[in-house]
């Protein structure tokens, strides 16, 4: 019954969802000359800067595998997370004028943001594959399992975004706090470096980060051409479902109070 309601609701608002995602695309590139090409170019340029800084200046390297692919694969995943969670955090607050006037399920707003960034994410896979081929890394049959990690990342981000958007309604300071948190998180996630350069003791802290597992999962396949271990399948699945569940509970419990904090 409960799930049937969700499905019916979802069907009813799917057109709105598609309109909101479309709106985001239109607005995002409205006045830029290159338009959607930025979606492809941005992560590549981002990668180039990081690779330049870390491999030339700090002499980072990843023995046996290509450093460019290493950086870009981590970056693509992390960028999705940081952009989607940032946008979904502000989505409820930004749409207050609507929420206050018309009944719309409030999850629509950040779900549309996660989808919008998700489509953008799929576009960034194009430059990733170009780099994979250009550097001679090549592909293998295991690439077919990659969507598993993407789905885990999506669910994790959704859950995390739900928690963030709920907190940010009650506590606007969250926008500033989270900006700092994301910066810190960027450096605590092994994107530019390999986790092996961290001391054993500190590694435990690094491994509490679910993003580490999603990124490792896709690197196992893309860089090392091997099937990720059963354990990493389980950790990825459980961590993402756990965050999604927590997010849903937190959001559901608080969403009726949102309107008082306009």
């Amino acid at each position: 019954m409960y799930f049937k309601n969700i499905y019916l609701n979802f069907k009813k608002y799917s057109f709105l969802l598609s309109q909101l995602v479309l709106r985001d695309f239109k607005v995002k590139y409205k006045r830029s000359v290159l338009g959607i090409i930025w979606s492809l170019l941005y992560p590549v340029l981002n990668m180039a800067v990081l690779a330049l800084v870390f491999s030339r200046m700090f002499k980072f390297s990843t023995p046996g595998v290509n450093y460019l692919v290493y950086v870009l694969s981590g970056l693509v995943m992390f960028n999705y997370f940081s952009e989607a969670s940032n946008l979904s955090m502000s989505s409820v607050v930004a749409n207050f004028s609507l929420i206050n006037k018309i009944y719309i399920p409030k999850y629509i707003f950040f779900f549309s943001k996660c989808l919008f960034v998700g489509i953008n994410f799929l576009l960034t896979l194009i430059p990733l594959y170009i780099v994979i081929f250009a550097t001679g890394t090549g592909i293998n049959i295991y690439h077919l399992i990659l969507p598993y990690a993407y789905i885990c990342l999506f669910m994790f981000t959704l859950g995390f975004g739900l928690i963030l958007s709920t907190i940010s309604v009650f506590l606007r300071d969250m926008f500033y706090i989270y900006g700092i948190v994301v910066t810190l998180w960027t450096y605590l996630t092994p994107i530019m470096y390999d986790i092996s350069i961290i001391s054993e003791k500190l590694q435990i802290i690094f491994k509490l980060n679910p993003l580490y597992y999603y990124i490792t999962f896709i690197r196992e396949i893309i860089l090392y051409h091997r099937m990720p271990s059963g354990l990493s399948f389980i950790i990825c699945g459980i961590s993402s479902l756990l965050f999604l569940a927590i997010g849903l509970i937190v959001f559901k419990k608080n969403q009726d109070k949102f309107i008082y904090y306009v």
């Binding site: 009813k12 608002y13 709105l16 598609s18 309109q19 909101l20 709106r23 609507l98 018309i102």
Partner: peptide
């Protein structure tokens, strides 16, 4: 289209 969708039109 956007506003129509907000108001729940198909």
């Amino acid at each position: 289209f956007l506003n129509g969708a907000v108001l729940g039109y198909s």
